[in-house]
Design a protein around this nucleic acid. Structure first.
Lengths: 209, 209
DNA sequence: TTAATTAACTTAACAGTGTTCAGTTAATGA
DNA sequence: TCATTAACTGAACACTGTTAAGTTAATTAA
């Protein structure tokens, strides 16, 4: 049965081609300016062909959304090499923010766009995003248990730190930071991250000493 | 010249009618599901008529964007009655978050949607949003001068606090908080705000005592 | 009062969107 | 060799924002 397998492989390759082309166009033209017809034209197929590989446009976006979370989770796991949980937490913040700044279109469809959420609710597939949340939560829990983190409800604390990082990058991705010069923005992001973690943890140390 | 004035008045009334209808539909159907044709149908005019009062769809959204900032600024100013700058800052956070939670469509077009930004860049009209940023900045400056706030670059601190509040509400508005039950969300928002302000300021006191 | 002008509005279209369905090829299996 | 299946497309549908030409109605000037 070599043929069936080959067919399946070709099907996967075609899906890959569509996804890669879609993402390339998203990067070039911005998320909202890419149409099914553009993608079709780029891969030199008829628009209708795309619907043989994906249910609809949101299905393409949803798939990229999943792959984005896959990437992000892998990045998050690189922090596991750090022993000190607070250091690891800081690194997680950096990793998250870097991911967003380097892949703004991925970040947008993962955390800002409305499209993918519809699909997720239809399919009841929260687990991918949930896993990343849980990873952060676990890190915060460790910090608390080590007395490095203010005692509080863990869910609230996790949501809070996530919100903070998300706030920074989403204001920039959606272009609400025009009060800062373009070329300083990357610096400001890093400083904002330092500021928040600094005010949360370092001032304790300062006062102790 | 009573007639010219009346005409002008009627023109303004028509603009108002379009804006109010648009906003009502936004609230009903969500921002992305409202079309010019819907608005036109609701006010019982032809779609083309709307283009006699607004340049294009983004112009409508941009105008609502402006009005949203007007509202927000007024709300911000209600905090001026509070003497203690740190208390006032906390209140500002509450006011901001409340505004977002009670007017999610306004918040969305003010701080998330891409549309209005295009218009703002065309017209180079940053001042409305800038004013609110400046107001927060001033409050933080006062806190710093009173020694109530960790010493830091004011711009970074302002951006940071704004980011934090924005992060919380935008994750909820764009439906990324499905790990929390719907009916708990309003509480979680408040607790997250408390958590952040708490870790930033209160733990100083705790350690001293 | 009547004719010319202007304003308010609509009709009908254009180009573009996501999506579907009937039809056409080409590859496969009996 | 022939029937079946898979891959693909052309042409359409129902939408979208937007505009140009045409039609009324209100206003102004004679």
């Amino acid at each position: 049965m070599g043929i069936k397998e080959r067919k399946e492989l070709e099907k996967q390759e075609m899906r890959r081609l569509i996804l890669d082309t879609a993402m390339k166009l998203f990067l070039e033209k911005g998320l909202e300016n890419v149409t099914i017809r553009h993608i079709a034209e780029k891969i030199e197929y008829s628009p209708a062909t795309i619907y043989l590989y994906f249910k609809d446009k949101d299905d393409i976006i949803y798939t990229l959304h999943r792959e984005g979370f896959e990437q992000l989770y892998k990045l998050q796991q690189t922090t596991l090499s750090i022993r000190d949980p607070l250091e690891r937490l800081r690194k997680q913040g950096e990793v998250y923010v870097s991911f967003a700044m380097e892949n703004p279109e991925y970040y947008d469809l993962m955390f800002i766009m409305r499209g993918p959420v519809k699909k997720i609710k239809e399919m009841k597939e929260w687990d991918i995003g949930f896993r990343s949340f849980e990873f952060l939560r676990q890190n915060i829990k460790e910090c608390m248990e080590a007395g490095l983190f203010p005692e509080a409800n863990i869910d609230i604390a996790t949501f809070s730190l996530w919100s903070y990082a998300h706030g920074i990058v989403s204001l920039i991705i959606r272009d609400r930071c025009t009060m800062f010069p373009e070329d300083k923005i990357r610096n400001i992001v890093d400083e904002a991250l330092d500021f928040m973690l600094g005010t949360m943890f370092d001032n304790k140390v300062e006062i102790k000493s």
